[in-house]
């Protein structure tokens, strides 16, 4: 039974992930006063890449890189419960907690970074360096907010945190939410902090050496990761969800905000984004933390 539920969670994540990805391309297109591609365009792209005649590989570690990334994404998904009270659709979250999820979020990209490294493309190495140096600046405000929430709800278990929120943490502690939101934009790879895979500056960064089915796998795992992160943010800050509809609604609202914020801003250079992240969101989060723990 649990296997069926896990499979269902995976399909939902895959489908909704690509749906959101298509919506993202359409909404940004509408921002740029043009008709975006059909809704399932990203899905078509990934399937087309799966159907390529052949794809270049550089040794077994290169081959395993995207696979580790994909398995990291799926594992993270399974450790995040979809709903607040009920135990169904909670995947394996009863066996893990928030720390496990926070580190799983980073396990995938690190595995992929190994593949990029063996690929030997200097642009790949440059992309990974930017990604990692941006990573720790992103994590700081997010960790402060998450720690505040964990100490507030007295447990590190995600479903418990979601259940504990009588009023949404986003409303109860707005400063924490804003701090976490800044780094969430970076985690979703949205504009002010997405210098990692910039197609022109860094020859599309880590993905520069991936062709054919590797690229397809990267696209599908990014869809799953997006959905997993959205659900996580909903559980942590927006008071979790009872049913599917509420889950989709909340995730879409969050996603909408993140894309629109992203499509309005140009790209920061890596030192700029680190400098910004270590200054503004961190101070907001620290103030939020102090206020939260004082009361």
């Amino acid at each position: 039974m649990i296997l069926l539920e896990l499979l269902l969670m995976l399909l939902v994540a895959y489908g909704v992930g690509f749906l959101y990805y298509g919506l993202y391309r359409n909404i940004t297109a509408r921002f740029q006063r043009r008709f975006g591609p059909p809704l399932w365009q990203s899905f078509f792209d990934s399937i087309k890449f799966f159907l390529k005649e052949e794809s270049t590989s550089h040794g077994w570690m290169f081959y395993l890189g995207p696979i580790i990334m994909m398995s990291g994404a799926i594992t993270t998904l399974f450790f995040i419960p979809f709903f607040k009270e009920t135990t169904n659709f909670s995947g394996l979250s009863s066996y893990g907690n928030l720390f496990v999820v926070l580190y799983l979020l980073v396990l995938g990209p690190l595995g992929n970074a190994l593949g990029v490294g063996t690929g030997g493309n200097p642009f790949g190495a440059m992309g990974v360096t930017r990604g990692l140096s941006r990573l720790f600046a992103l994590e700081l405000p997010f960790y402060i907010a998450v720690i505040a929430i964990m100490s507030l709800s007295g447990s590190a278990d995600i479903s418990e945190i979601a259940a504990h929120q009588s009023t949404m943490y986003a409303l109860a502690y707005p400063l924490l939410f804003i701090g976490a939101l800044f780094s969430f934009i970076g985690m979703m790879g949205q504009s002010p902090f997405d210098v990692v895979g910039a197609p022109v500056e860094v020859y599309s960064g880590p993905a520069s050496e991936f062709s054919g089915k590797f690229l397809a796998l990267l696209m599908s795992q990014s869809a799953i990761y997006t959905f997993a992160k959205l659900v996580l943010m909903v559980n942590l800050f927006l008071g979790g969800a009872q049913g599917f509809l509420e889950l989709l609604l909340k995730t879409f609202v969050l996603f909408l905000f993140v894309i629109s914020f992203g499509s309005l801003y140009g790209r920061f250079k890596t030192p700029q984004s680190i400098d910004f992240l270590l200054k503004v969101p961190t101070t907001i989060a620290v103030i939020g933390l102090i206020l939260a723990t004082w009361s």
Partner: peptide, 10 residues
């Protein structure tokens, strides 16, 4: 892009 045509870096 409405025809599914997109730029690719590499």
């Amino acid at each position: 892009e409405r025809l599914g045509i997109r730029g690719a870096a590499t």
